[in-house]
Amino acid sequence: MLYIHCPYCGELREEEEFHPKGQAHIARPLDPDACSDEEWGDYLFFRDNPRGIHHELWVHAVGCRKFFNVTRHTVTYEILETYRMGEQPTITAEHPEGRPSRDAADQASLREGVRA
């Protein structure tokens, strides 16, 4: 039973209030018709299954009904951070202790790292 900090409610709340919605940062291709069948298949069906730090999409279903992202360690189940839609994680597999700085260059490289 996880204890999850909802970034919109600003509180830790019981797992029973949430629904998990799979891997985070899976963006729908802006022009689906320009995708090859393989690209579209990748978007639809292929997901990461890392041992370690993972970014997930959750919704506070019995609460504020907002979707948000969770950085969770798949071995320890520790939740390292939660962040709102549209935001990027500060903790990633490449930077498990958190990003060294928040400058623009870092932000850009980070985006690539999480397949946003």
Partner: peptide, 11 residues
């Protein structure tokens, strides 16, 4: 309802 919210909030 959750489906509509998903698309509205994330995409």
């Amino acid at each position: 309802l959750e489906w509509l919210e998903l698309w509205h909030q994330t995409e």
